[in-house]
Each structure stands twice: as C-alpha cells, then as structure tokens.
Design a protein around this nucleic acid. Sequence first.
RNA 1: GCCGGUGUGUUGGAAUGGUAGACGAGGCGGACUCAAAAUCCGUUGCCAGCGAUGGCGUGUGGGUUCGAGUCCCACCACCGGCACCA
Length: 835
Amino acid sequence: MKYEFDAIEKKWQRRWEETKPYAAVTGDPRPKFYGLIEFPYPSAAGLHVGHPRPFTAMDVITRKKRMEGYNVLFPIGFDAFGLPTENFAIKNHVHPAAVTRDNIANFTRQLKMLGYGFDWDRVVDTTDPQYYKWTQWIFLQLWKHGLAYKATMPVNWCTSCKCVLANEEVVEGVCERCGSPVIRKEKSQWMLRITEYAQRLVDDLDELDFIERVKTQQRNWIGRSTGAQVRFTATTGDEITVFTTRPDTLFGATYMVLSPEHELVRKWLPTLENADEIRAYQRAAAAKSDLERTELNKDKTGVELKGVRGVNPVTGTEIPIFISDYVLATYGTGAIMAVPGHDERDWDFAKAFGLPIVEVVSGGDVTKEAFVAKDDSAVMVNSGFLNGLTVKEAIPAMIAWLTERGLGEAKVNFKLRDWVFSRQRYWGEPIPMVNCPACGWVPLPETELPLLLPNVASYEPTDDGESPISKMTDWVNCACPKCGGPARRETDTMPQWAGSSWYFLRYMDPHNDAALVSPEAEAYWGPVDWYNGGMEHTTLHLLYSRFWHKFLYDIGVVHTKEPYARRTSHGMILGQNPVYVGNVETEAEKQALIEKYGNQALRPAVKMSKSLGNVVNPDDVVRAYGADTMRLYIMFIGDFEKTATWSDEAVKGSKRFLDRCWNLLELAKDEPGLSPQNEAAIHRTIKKVTEDIDGLKMNTAIAALMSLVNDFYARGCTRADLEILTALLSPFAPHLAEEMWEALGAAARSGKMVMQSPWPQYDEAKMTEQEKEIAVQINGKLRGTVVIPLDADQETVVGLVHANEKLARWFAGMTAVKTILVKNKLVNFILKPEK
RNA sequence: GCCGGUGUGUUGGAAUGGUAGACGAGGCGGACUCAAAAUCCGUUGCCAGCGAUGGCGUGUGGGUUCGAGUCCCACCACCGGCACCA
C-alpha cells in the first residue's frame, strides 16, 4: 500500500472542516492556552516559504497542548490595510477592497492546504468595517485621555510613498518598506504620546519571558538615560535649558550648542550680527536627509551666534553659543552644554572652532582626545567644590547643588519619540476626527463608528502631501458633531500598525458588536501565553501593541499590564544563491560574478527574490511532496531561531522519513503491548519530543523520531509501538498521523482522532536498558569502551576493564594513582609508571 | 563606536564539563531489477598503515580541570540591531 499523501491530506482536511476539532471554547473548565503567530499581510504573491516556519512551529505547539488537555486558542487573521495593496490597485485599476478579498481567499486556501489547526470561525480582517470600528474606537479613547494630538513638526517623509513615516519605519535613513530616501518635512500630523509610557515600557520588560535580544533591542530603542536638566542664562536674559548625563562636568562647559531649529535662535535672529550666515546654515541643515545628517557628515560644522552669550551657572563665566546640526532638535531640550574635555563630539567641535578645552576629570590627556571616563571612580579637578570627589560622588553632589539654587534638577530622558500616526494614503482606517472652524478638533461620537472609507475615483497619492480622500468633497465636508456648523473631516488615514496593535484581543471575541472584547472573554483568554514572530517587528508592532495594551489596561478594557507572556522569534529562510562564486570553477568566472553582483556573489545563501529566481513557492512543494513533508522539513531545517537555507535536495529526506513511517504499518507485528526491545527507546523518545517541543527545538525532536523509526526497522516493532510513534508524530505530520491512527484501529477503539487523544506519557524508570556501554579513558584520553551492568560500582567497572585485553595492556608497568568513575558514562584512570 | 549573536565534516546541523560529529543531505559499496527509479543493507572527519592500531581534530593563542566544542582571559572573522541621543 503506497502512501498517497494527496488523497490522505484532502480527506483529513475535509474531516476537520466538518467536525471543527480546533474550536476554542470560551469559558471551558480546561486550562487555557493561547498561542499566537503574527497574522500575515495578504500580498498578491501569496504565501512564501518564510510564513510556514513560524506558523508550523506554533501549530505543532498548540496541537501538543491540545493533546495534553488544554483548551487551545490558535487563531488566524489578515493584516490587510497597507501600501502594496493600494499600489497594486492603482496599477491595475481595481478597488483595493477587491484586491484584498482575492488575496485573502488565496492565503486561506494555502493555509488550509498546509493543515494548520486554526479556529477558522475567529478570522479577523483589519479592513472589515466591523473590525476597524474598534480600531477607531481605541483612537477616540486615546484622544479623550490626551494621548492623541495634532502637531506641526518636522517629520520623516518618504519621497516615493509620498507619505510620512514613524521613526520606527526609517531604517538607516531610508524607508523601511521601499528603500527610498527619507527627507525631513514640516507637516501637521496626528501623534500618539507613546513617550508617556516610555518608563513603563522599559521597566515592565524585566518581568516578561521574552528572548533576551528582543528585550535589549527594545531597551536600546527606548533609550533611557539618566542625568540632569540645567538652566543656563543668556546675556539677553533668556533661559537656556540643557540636558546632560554628566552634570559632574559642568565646570568644564566652555561653550553651548543649540540645534539649528531651536526656538531661541528664531527669537534672537533679528538682533544677531551674523543673521544671514545663520539663516543659510539653518536652510542647509533643513534640506539634509537623515542619511546626510548622520552617516555622511561626521565632520562638525556650525555657526556662532554673534551678539549673544551664555553664562555657565556654576562658574559665572560668559561662554559662546553656537548652532550645529550635531545637536538634534528632537532629543532632550534641543540644546547642550559642551564639555570638550570629556565628550568626543564636543572635543571635535572645539578643535574645529578653536575653543578652549578644560580638564575636569583626571586620568586622560585632553589635549590629545576627549577623556570619557570608563569607570566612575576617576577624580574631579578644576571643579571648585567637586574637586577630589569621584565621578560617582560628583554627579549627585552637583545635582543637589543645582536643585538647592533652582538651577536644575535630576532628569530622565528617552530616545523614544511620539508616534507619528497619520498617513497620506487611501487604504487605511479613516481617523474619526472632524475639524470645525469654531470648535477646533472634535471627535466623532462613538455611535457613528465605524466611519467608513469613502469610494474614490483615484487612489493616487498627491504630490502636495494630501491624502487621496481629500478630493472627496462630499465626504470631507460635514457638520461639526459639537456645534452643527460646517466642518471638515480628517483625510489622513491610520498607519498599518494600527490594526495590528490590538488584533490578538479581537480573536478572543471576534463577533462582538457591543465591545471590542467582552470582559468575560478577555478575562478567560488573556494574556497571550506564547507569541512567536519576527525580529523585524521588535521596535515596531511589538512595541506599539505593548503601548496600546498598557493604555487599554489603564482604562479598564483588559486585565493584564502586558499583552504577551512569552515571546520567541524565528530565523529567516534563505534561498540558495544562484550567483554564488562557489558554484563556478575558474577564477575568471568567479571574478565575473563578483563584478556583476558584488558582495552578493560571496554568499552561498541569500534572501529569496524574484530577480534571482530562487523563490520557493509552498504550492509547488506541497504538490510534489505533500503538506506533511513541507511541515516536517521546515521544522527539521535547523535551529528555529537562526536563519536557515532552503534545500530542494534535503526536502526529500523528510519525505523519505514519512514513507518509512507509513511502511511500518505493514511491518508491525500484531502483538499486544510495547515490544520489550523498544520499550526503553520509546520512553526516551517520548521524553525528548515532549521537552523539545516546549523548548522550540523541533529539529532535535524530529531527529529523535527518526532514530526511533530506525530502531523499529532494525529490531522490529508492534502495533502498540507504532501507536505511540503516531501520536508523537501527529503535531508535525497531522494528516499522515490521522491516517495511520485509523489504520492501526486506534481511532475505532477510542472513537477519537489522534489529535483528540492524550499525549503519550513517559516513565523515567523504564528509560534505560539493563546494560550500558561506557567510555574508558587513560589519562584523559579515550582508549576504548566497555559494557557494564546498569549502575555498576567502581570495583565492578575496574574488573571489567582489566578483563578486556585491549584495555588491560595500557596498565602494564603502570600504577593507577587515581580512578574517576562517572556513573553509567565513563571511567578515567590516571596512570603513572611503577617505580 | 555601542549592544546582541555566531564560528563544529563535503553539506544542513547535534552534543546538562564526561565516547565530538546524533539526525538529515550528498558520496561510496552491495542487494533487488532486463534496466532505471524507488526501496532495503552497509560505509563515510582528516593523516599514516594491508591491518590491528596510532596520531591529529570544534576560528586563533593562553588558562582552569582527571577530563573543555562547552568554563575563564586575550584576540580574529562574520552576521544582526542601534548610532552626532549630549
């Protein structure tokens, strides 16, 4: 009987569709388990092989949990708003909603084809008005609590998407999505006060079971620094507040620098001697892209403000004030005190402009380079009342001194900035706000939600930076909800990250019309027990959704401070590199490849891309080998957390293994009970597979199953042996396992499918054979092995070693000065020549 | 520059301080076959040797230990994130 994967997979998928064994039951007395994967963006290209890795892993985990008696929630949905769909719609002259519908249908087909145990009755779609009604509702709550505001400020503007971007969406100066340059543009934008939550977003990480690199990356991004705010005065009488992490070095502050955009510069400008020069510098700085301002511009530039000076509050000395683009308008107060002796950037600037450099911390040579004390036990000099103190002592001493005199105070600053929340595009959630000439910004009443996206003739973004909806005058013009007068709707839409910031809550209660989630459902299912997703979302989706969740906690919608109890992450699947230099023989061919493709030619594996033609389509793999092989291979491919390279050859190994499992049906003996020769191996395998799935080590779990099958071939097996194997295999290859379970008669006997049956249990006492082969070392070097009875004592082991001819000869003319026995593992003899 | 990670056969990768290379892929040999595919059995780190066997082996150099891929110190290479954040 051949393993007909195609027929078997279709048969069980139909059966699951009919009987819905995956349904999650809210309020069920069993313990709950909520396993979550990042819902996909339904692109026109369909599922690529990157998706099945995290999806299959969580499917394996939740299938096992179900067999262990948990009430499992394993949902799926679609994060369907976004630019690619909109661009596709523009290009092909179809409505984005129609594009979305088709793409979701295709994704659904593919996900079902792979046999995932999703609860299909809980599907969410962020573009469904019944869904985005609640996204808009959350926005209104943020507004009510003062966490949403509209402000005009320099924002990141993608020149190709013609749209603003959040800081999180700018990667190395270019647009995260399309790679086009990002420039600064002054625009009025909706903002969310994520900075209000910065402290909690950092602190609460400590309690979470997130992989460490996620925590560090978020901490880095939020960028907390502790220091002081210090008020300097200007000769004009104005106050200049600066932030510093090194208040101890205040005596060494020999000049000040303001960012070119600083408001005091604007105020002073008319009175300054070199106003034209300053304006020119401001214009030049404004025109620079982020990339130019950082990467390409390490040389310090700036202009002194002639006609105004600052006063160092601790020395009383007048010091010059500069503007320079190395001081960022958006961090701290946009102004710094410069201590060239102990800050590299200030040192560079002081050198370039011939400014005095004063040493205030001893231990370096400030004439050669800035001395940035690495340990805080360095001693203060040239610093009045701080002289003789260590840096560690001087910091609080200076803060106390400043506080007493009202000149400053301790202050914590964050790199994190408020979240730019509007986008000048069509395919997103409308922001439910109305601008009234009389009342200002007025929120839409909750009863009018959802505010539907209007149908427009053209989705093209406009060059003037307005959303396509702005041309829909009969939608835009409306009555003010407050005074009834003529008003205009907000025409920008929300960013893609809006819908995904709370979707995991909607899964708990997806059809609720009255609330985004009922308190009962939320209390039962929250928080997510295990969330697996990509590292690329660490400072985007993962951070945003933690922020929204904390807000929902504050207003009593959810009962936990954090949305996710555990977070893991998978590595990317790379494709074989068709232009790798290792693929060709001659030096000339290698050179040609390097010339044509550059560094890319030096890597054996690269990101899959259409242009290289190395994209693997899951449809093709399933057609050729079946879904179970695809699932098994993607789990076996390597360490889950690391990148892995797809290999068409290696897939065959997984198929071969499933064939071998199937063929055991005919070889298994119809004898009752586990076979004695396999019992220990079976118990060991149960333990290994159980623990490895929990530890996300799917590759070694599968290796253990392969070993067991090899044992069955070598030593024979019974149908009872095979039932255990089938149960252990079922999370990985569910279709094949159901078919085997049925063929073994287990389904008829219990009236249950394997996925509804209990997970096999192991017995530690039955895990070892009565005999063990142990290593024998002489002076730490392996010289042979010897078979011993289980738990044999040293005397017995030594006896057996001496009885072994090959080993015994090492002892000739030697005395054992020491013998180390590691029970059931190894014995090591330390030998010395006899005297 | 800062933070995090990774270096193991031809190859993907395994190894609570205790027989390095499990389990796959590929290679080689054999059985079955008219033949091929599939399947099954055996073999496969490197060097020397007909062989038993011996020597060498986890990026480099030291150290701790009876024993180190694993722990400590100092390097090197690569990957990822952040980066003029005061």
